[in-house]
Amino acid sequence: MQDISLVDLDLSKNQITDSGLATLCESLKLNKSIEFLNLAGNLLKDEGFKSMVDYLAANTKLKELSLGSNKITNEGLLNLAGFLAQNHTLQMLDISRNNFTDYGFSLFC
């Protein structure tokens, strides 16, 4: 994936876990072209989100990220909030239908 000029990757509604997400994010760190990434409807939890936040911190290309219908809790949401404060390229983030509460969401905002 590092060598191809992939811009849009839709991996939604599959069976990707935190382990797979960590592998994907390591690879994506070397890929400088991805702008749209859809990981909605997988089996992702907070642990996997740490890899995602590391990747996002080093990324200046990604415009749209869909993470809906996973298993993110307040903890994962807080990690993501820290990154969002510093990122200036992401234009769309979908975190619908996860496991965080109103309290987590208030911290996120």
């Binding site: 191809i4 000029s5 992939l6 811009v7 849009d8 990757l9 839709d10 991996l11 939604s12 509604k13 599959n14 069976q15 990707i16 876990t17 382990s19 797979g20 592998t23 072209s33 859809n38 409807g41």
Partner: peptide, 13 residues
């Protein structure tokens, strides 16, 4: 290839 959509294809780790 610039766009790949493999949603709902039972893709595992």
């Amino acid at each position: 290839l610039r766009k790949i959509n493999v949603a709902k294809t039972e893709l595992t780790d």
